[in-house]
Structures are given as structure tokens and as C-alpha cells.
Design a protein around this nucleic acid. Structure first.
Lengths: 196, 196
DNA sequence: CTTATTTTTGAACCATCATTCATTTATGGT
DNA sequence: ACCATAAATGAATGATGGTTCAAAAATAAG
């Protein structure tokens, strides 16, 4: 018998994030990822069905994490909807700050994944969006947020804006101060959703 | 001698926009585009150097158009910066509304093009962003817009948000009323940038 | 140490298109 | 009509890179 050494699946995923970020999914080569992960090309196929499913796994793990953390925030009763909303933004920011390459991959390849309905990942993603919507609804109910806000539109606009900013930042961290970015986004959005 | 009949270059570009939107750039096949354009596969290479340059041409033409229209708006002296800003938003909205497939292509493939610096298209794109920035600067100077606004951040956030919304809309026009979308975006942004 | 079993390897395979080019077709001038 | 030239064709070519798999290596059990 022989047992698996180390955590090759994680090594491959980490390498894939790095390479996908640098080359883009379609330009990235499996052999390149394998090299970065210090495994043989064929080994990738011991852990993943094919190239697509490597990307899908990256998305799944991220959105699951975001979803779970958002769930905790949503349930809190000690803070108001605005604070929940800010916490959520902070959480997402922090996550991508901790892993810029991941930010690039998510920002760049989401379209491809959503297009092909390859997205079992879509479960957590949709759930996360729903939680965000819940927070906004609560705020509207409590008259903290603007009554005319269309939730679908707001959430999509915000999401797209954030994604693009993170992508810019991840590609040239020096051009943007993330702190300033966070401040500005919060400011723009708050002034846009507050009723007074 | 023989002269070119019709406008095959335009036929190919239109077909490409349609196919790129439906399949995504990397999945789209030249033969498929040729078929859609009613030309032979090889004919595509009479008008374009390669697959990439078809995509680049699509971007070039769009951003040139947007840039030129923005330039007209910028120069006007009869309206204030806020109105200029709104006009600019309207213009971009109108353009994509008139051609949803184009919206999808732009939204989906921009990352790919920007990554590879394949972007001679970037000239008009950058110029457009600069014009937008000019409008904002003017508004800040005239104390119509918030003094603490970071232009880079604001423009990137707005751009990303709009792009994502248009992409959603282009993929399922029935889920979103564009009119409502336009209203909401203007509202969110205005409340975010107005100083009072 | 030997054997059985599982993991790992990486070179070879092969499907997929982008691209080419020899051939055909159309046009305009004479 | 005929020729010269340019435009158009689409089957053949060739490169690329995802995927496979026979062989090798590592480990545990006896």
C-alpha cells in the first residue's frame, strides 16, 4: 500500500490560481500549473476531472467561504443593516486583499463560468447574493435605506464595481491604496443608499 | 480587375460580435463566424490578420465612437458638469441598448485584451476615461461634486458596475428594465458624488 | 526483504481549430 | 470575347495543448 503524501490537491489549486491570474484561464497550460505545483502533468488529472473543473473548484471554495461568513453577519442582532452592509464589504475586501491572484481570477473568469452553466459553484454564489439582498431589505424596512432602491440593480452594480476595482488593484497594487479604495466605495455607496 | 462586392469587412465584424457574444471569444470558431457572415473561412483572413485582430477591431471601433461622442459633450458650455456626466451615462447606455451583443462582448473580453497589451484599442479607451475624469474634475472645481472623491476609484467603480449591469441585461433582457436601471444608477451615483 | 497495492510520472496521443494556399470565380478594361 | 488581375474559396496543413496510460516509484503489510 501507499498513502498520499502532502496535500497535492491544495498545491495544485494554489498553483492554478497563480497561473490563471498571470496568464488567464485559456492561455494557462496544465503542464505549467503542474510545474508550479511540483507535480507531474498527469497528476493534475488524479485530483481533477479536467481543466474546467480546476477553475470551478476555485470558485466553489471562494463563494462557499464568502457565503458562510456573510451568513454570520446576517444573523447578528447587535448591529443595524448599515453596519452589516459595511461588515460585508470589509469581509470581501479582506479576503481578496489576502489573495490578490484570487481576485484577478474571480474577476476575469466569472463570465466564462457563468456562461457555460458549468456552475455548480453558482449555488453558493447565488446564496451569497441573496444574503446581501436580505440585508438591504432589512435596511429598507427599517427606513435606513432608500425606499426606491431596486435590489437587483443595486447589488449587481455594486458587485461589478467592486470586482473591477479589485481587478485593477490586483494588477497594479501601487496605483491604488486599498484603504482609500475601501473608504471611497463605502462613501459612494452609503450616500447612494441612505435615505437622508 | 475585380472589385470587392458589398462590405464583407462589416459583415464579418457583425457576425463576429454575434458569435463572440453567444460563444465567448475563445470558444468561437472562425469557420462559424465566416458562415454567419456568408463568406468562406479563408476570406476572414483577407480582412483581418488573425482572430485576435477581429476582436481588437471591435473594441477599437466602439471606443473610438464613445470617445468622440464624449468629446462633444465635454466641450459644451451650456450645461454643468452634472448634466455632462448624465449625458455621458445616457450615451453609453444608448449605445449598448442598440447592440446588446456588443455589450456582452465588451463586458466579457475586455480582461483578455487588456492583459495582452494587444490593445492599440487602448488609446481611445484611455482617452475616453480621461475625458470622464475631466468632467468630474470640473465638477469638483465648481464644488458641485464631493471634494474627497478619488477620480481613479470613482471612474473604475462606475465603469465596472455599469459593465456588469449591461452584461446581466444583455443576457436576460426581461429580468431588468433598462429604464429602471438607468434611473437607479444615476440615482446611486448622484447621491454619491453630490456635495450636499 | 518481498509482495501487493496505490500513487505518481511524463512522454505519447489525438482532437481541435487557426491559418495557409493552390485553385476557382468574378470583374473591368481593351 | 478575351485577357489580366483581384477577390474569394474551402480543403489541407500544422501547431498547440488537453488528456491518457503504460511504466515506475513509493509505501504498508506480512
Amino acid at each position: 500500500m501507499r498513502t498520499k503524501e502532502g496535500n497535492k490537491e491544495k498545491d495544485i489549486l494554489d498553483a492554478a490560481i497563480k497561473i490563471f491570474a498571470k496568464e488567464g484561464f485559456h492561455q494557462a497550460k496544465i503542464s505549467q500549473i503542474a510545474k508550479e505545483a511540483n507535480v507531474a502533468t498527469g497528476s493534475v488529472y488524479l485530483y481533477f476531472k479536467n481543466k474546467d473543473s480546476v477553475l470551478i473548484k476555485i470558485f466553489e471554495e471562494l463563494w462557499q467561504k464568502i457565503y458562510q461568513e456573510t451568513k454570520v453577519i446576517t444573523k447578528r442582532t447587535d448591529i443595524d443593516p448599515l453596519e452589516k452592509f459595511e461588515n460585508m464589504l470589509d469581509m470581501v475586501f479582506d479576503l481578496f486583499i489576502a489573495n490578490p491572484s484570487l481576485a484577478v481570477v474571480i474577476a476575469s473568469e466569472e463570465h466564462y463560468l457563468l456562461r457555460g452553466k458549468k456552475g455548480r459553484f453558482a449555488n453558493f454564489y447565488e446564496s451569497f447574493l441573496d444574503l446581501g439582498e436580505e440585508i438591504l431589505k432589512e435596511g429598507i424596512k427599517k427606513k435606513i435605506f432608500n425606499q426606491n432602491l431596486d435590489l437587483q440593480i443595486f447589488r449587481n452594480f455594486t458587485f461589478g464595481g467592486l470586482r473591477h476595482l479589485l481587478h485593477m488593484w490586483a494588477n497594479s497594487p501601487t496605483d491604488f491604496s486599498l484603504t482609500l479604495m475601501r473608504q471611497n466605495v463605502k462613501y459612494i455607496l452609503k450616500k447612494g443608499i441612505l435615505s437622508n
